[in-house]
Amino acid sequence: MHEISHLQLQKNKTQMMTLFVSIGITMIFAMVAMGFGSSKNLDFLTSMKILLGIQESTGLQSDILWNLRFPRILMALVGGAALAMAGAMMQGCLGNPLVSPLTLGVASGAALGAALAIVLGLTLVSIPELAIVANAFLFSLIVVFIIIKLGSMRSVSKESYILIGIAITFIAGAIVSTLQYFATDAQLSQLAHWSFGSLSRPNLTNVLWISVVVLTLFPSGLKSAWDLNALSIGGDDFAISTGVNPVKTRKSILVLSAFLTSVVIAFTGLIGFVGLAAPHMSRLVIGNDYRKLIPCSAVFGAFLTLFADTLGRTLFAPIVIPVGVMLSIIGGPFFMYLLLNKRGA
């Protein structure tokens, strides 16, 4: 380590710069995104002037800015960051680059919860506006809990989590299909609508709550970075020889990332791709040290989601393309370009 310390320091510096520049770009872009929208009462320039305090806003204008655009943009930032961070942590602790936050049955659990609420009216919380959200959240946690319990029962290998996750995904998927079979047309369309990830559903209060939860969990994510490094450098045997208990660590990181994911997708529906792509993009840019990879993934995830959503609501305005679809359309090719480029180098 010491003979290469000079080079290492230089590299660290560049990486930190990259991280700060990305944060800056994301924040500027978030402000710019506040200017986009289909309302005739508020064009781009006026929005910018209001935000910069150059111009007073009318009641309607401030309503559009702060109650419509702001929650959506904040949701993109927070949701994207949370999903990307969860993705990075899951990839690290399961030692599998194909894992995303939705792989482990979190998504199918959420879908099952939503379907039960929509089709059967079977809800765990009696507040009507929150019934679907609460169901999606609780069922995704229940599913993860079952996976972790079963996965650690017979064997302690990380593959068992993935395999049981796949099996449970099929089972939950079959139940959802059965429910769809008996659902009315209205219920079917509501269910389909739920499963397209969308950032417009949560209101300002929801988004603020989600932000609080995600921000509270962020330090725990960072704290797990060392343990993830130990797990990903040399596997379980290496981890335990440095005093990191791989089995316990894996469980707690899975719970943490599942929690981050469920909090977001319960409100937004299924947004998957960012949790796979953002961590990989970060790996290419900043390397595999989780102390940098986790914050970097969060920033990339936030930017990617916001960019996709902004494009989705301006490209064919007033038609809005759901963010989940948009993410895959623009993220997919970009992701492939990065991967292929890396091979060539």
Binding site: G234, D237, I240, S241, T242, G243, V244, N245
Partner: peptide
């Protein structure tokens, strides 16, 4: 406590 189990492996790691 954290790190309560210490392991010096045969293959040193």
């Amino acid at each position: 406590k954290r790190g309560g189990l210490g392991y010096i492996p045969q293959k040193l790691g």
